[in-house]
Design a protein around this nucleic acid. Structure first.
Lengths: 240, 240
DNA sequence: TGTACATCAGTGAACGCGCGTTCACTGATGTAC
DNA sequence: TGTACATCAGTGAACGCGCGTTCACTGATGTAC
């Protein structure tokens, strides 16, 4: 790495690096132990430091957790976003498969980070303000909605296989996702929510081992079939 | 309560009652604290006993957890089963709605028990043998499969909206659910798995608050629409 | 360039706490004759 | 029916442990003149 143009003081860089190391080691421990309940003392030990040193970087354990959760959001969003953009921007079927697969594989690869975001809360940790939880929903959905919007704009989004949109859902779309107003039909908005929840279901079951009784091949086949089915019912171009 | 005909020794009954009380208080604490990580000492305190007394009933903390998890399976299975049987046995659309709604509502009512079964493992608790996890899948599915089988037997199960069944899924159906062989077409077996995972997705998202940003009405509407859509695509009679 | 001071990372000892679990015991409940 | 014994629930004290966090400190890194 060559030094960046903007001169960042050495000490600040060292500090930032240490923060990253703490979080990274915390994640390693979480992965190793299979539990999101990581101990300050263990982190310090793994870094060959003493526990009090960590207080230079995080006011307390909760602050570290908040950082880990935020990072998990970012990582999932980044991974899914990259997957989407790795496919030609006119190939909406391909992009949908890419998004869904990235979501699934991230959860399988990082089940602990996944449950940090989407699971039950960590023992003893109270999410500040309910913020992050809501944020998880927003970011996960924003990856999907970009896909749906792009498809809609190019006229590649058929009418989904649903009857009519309930007034409460209409109001909800307006209130909470006004930016989609006029771009994405209400039926498509609802279909998108349904797509997300279906995708999430398979992802959860698999990530926590509840589909282990099927072989890996069967799981893959089921996933592919679900992804295809979701495309069909939501009005996205159908893969294959 | 009048004494039962079969003479169960008083002490044994008292013992069984205490075991039930321990588990019930443990659940109360889990619900109150919002965490599955319940302490032996807290349970004893709530029962106005001393912690060592609990060792008369459970060899250690893990044994209590195993019991709680087993109970959670049973409770979910029972609730879903009752819901199914509360609807006329020829009304398959109604039965499907009942099953799905019961699943959803149980998770919403008992998010901690739900995550005991379907979430990431409890800190410090190692599930014996991987048994329970697999068991969760089996029992949840058995409630669904009874519905699908009944519909199939009466010729009320249309062909689902999927292309063809992957050989790996065919093999999996034979191996793991041979009892369905000849009763439930492979397409329907696959569709049933898909139905479960979709249902599970909505349920998880809602139970852990990731759909709180919609109003309750909108969530209900989305759920109803999903349940209907699943019926449509799996070949079950469609509700409404 | 060199010196004097300020800033900050990290240490080591300590505090208070609560946990799961063990052990020897007391006292009540049930059983056998 | 009464007595002698066995069984079992629950207690209270103790053990060992590891946690999060605080505090006064040392020593290195950076800054100002």
């Amino acid at each position: 790495m060559t030094p960046t143009g903007t001169a960042v003081p050495r000490r600040e860089r060292a500090r930032a690096a240490t923060i990253e190391e703490i979080k990274s080691i915390a994640l390693d421990l979480i992965r190793e132990q299979g539990t999101t309940d990581v101990k300050f003392a263990d982190i310090a030990r793994a870094m060959e430091m003493t526990p009090p040193a960590l207080y230079r970087y995080f006011a307390d354990r909760d602050e570290l957790f908040t950082a880990l959760i935020t990072d998990a959001y970012d990582d999932l969003g980044r991974v899914v976003g990259h997957a989407r953009e790795a496919v030609a921007d006119t190939d909406f079927a391909g992009r949908w498969v890419a998004v869904a697969s990235a979501y699934r594989e991230w959860a399988r690869r990082e089940p602990q980070q996944f449950s940090l975001i989407f699971g039950a809360p960590v023992p003893g940790y109270a999410a500040p303000d309910e913020g992050p939880t809501t944020e998880a929903a927003r970011r996960a959905m924003s990856q999907l909605s970009e896909l749906f919007v792009a498809a809609a704009v190019r006229g590649k989004l058929r009418k989904p296989l649903i009857r009519d949109v309930d007034p409460s859902l209409l109001a909800c779309a307006d209130d909470k996702h006004g930016e989609l107003n006029g771009v994405l039909a209400p039926e498509s908005f609802q279909a998108m929510l349904g797509a997300w929840s279906s995708l999430h279901g398979f992802t959860c079951l698999e990530a926590y081992g509840h589909l282990d009784w099927m072989g890996a091949d069967a799981r893959d086949a089921l996933f592919a079939s679900q992804v295809r089915l979701i495309a069909k019912t939501t009005g996205l171009p159908v893969p294959d």
